[in-house]
Simulated assay, not measured.
Amino acid sequence: MAQGGWISRWPVIRQLRGEDGRGDAARSARTDALRPRTEEADTVARSVCPYCAVGCGQLVYVKDGRVTQIEGDPDSPISRGRLCPKGSASKQLVTHPGRQTRVLYRRPHGTDWEPLDLETAMDMIADRVLRTRRETWQQEEKGKVVRRTMGIAGLGGATLDNEENYLMKKLYTALGAIQVENQARI
């Protein structure tokens, strides 16, 4: 049998083609009115799935400044238009109503979260990093110059791309951290 010939024998294919006299039975006005979510997009941005280190290409469809659909990018040499279940559901990362969109902070020994503006949160983080570096800095160990801190460590993740990992490594090295690792091993 010719390649693809067996598919043409499927009843639903014959119905949709109208070859078996029941074409209208397989269609409805609602079916004919349906349009792809991608059809009305104002812009389409190329992106990379954030879930793992594979780096599958994604097309992000946007209408009126809101993400309407995310699909696999057929031009991606990595995934050739395919996405795993997590990548297929990645639209929820930006559209789910339960997504946190502000910084929340729980004070030491506190029981409730309180909102903070981003600038305050970033200042708190910077202060703690600098204080930890200052308090744990080692200039020498056993008579050898080491210029390091053992109080700061970094663990990269599988969702980081090469450029992000490079910048993180440069930051940690500049801080004097020597415990820098990445768990992105596939």
Results as ranks from 00 to 15, higher is better:
Arg185Gly: 07
Glu164Met: 14
Leu34Phe: 14
Leu167Trp: 13
Val48Tyr: 03
Val103Trp: 09
Asp20Gln: 10
Thr132Pro: 01
Tyr61His: 14
Asp42His: 04
Lys170Pro: 01
Arg9Pro: 00
Arg9Lys: 14
Arg148Gln: 13
Pro36Val: 02
Arg14Gln: 15
Met168Ala: 12
Arg17Gln: 12
Arg99Lys: 11
Thr101Leu: 10
Ile152Leu: 15
Met168Tyr: 10
Gly5Phe: 00
Gly154Asn: 00
Ile78Met: 13
Gln183Gly: 11
Gly4Phe: 00
Leu16Met: 12
Ala184Asn: 07
Asp20Lys: 10
Ile78Leu: 10
Thr173Glu: 12
Met122Gly: 03
Gly23Asp: 05
Tyr51Met: 08
Gly157Glu: 04
Glu119Gln: 15
Thr111Trp: 07
Arg133Leu: 03
Leu160Phe: 07
Ile13Pro: 00
Gly57Ala: 05
Val103Pro: 05
Lys63Glu: 03
Arg46Gly: 12
Tyr105Met: 11
Ile178Thr: 15
Trp6Ile: 01
Glu114Thr: 14
Cys84Val: 09
Ser8Gln: 02
Gln92Thr: 09
Asp20Ile: 05
Val145His: 08
Ser88Met: 12
Ala41Glu: 02
Cys56His: 02
Thr159Tyr: 06
Ala25Tyr: 07
Thr132Phe: 02
Glu19Ser: 10
His109Gly: 14
Tyr105Asn: 12
Ala184Phe: 07
Arg82Val: 08
Thr38Ala: 08
Asp127Cys: 06
Ile13Val: 15
Arg134Gln: 13
Trp6Lys: 11
Leu167His: 14
Asp75Gly: 09
Arg35Asn: 07
Gly57Pro: 04
Gly87Thr: 08
Tyr105Leu: 14
Trp113Asn: 09
Lys63Thr: 12
Arg82Ser: 10
Arg9Val: 00
Arg99Cys: 01
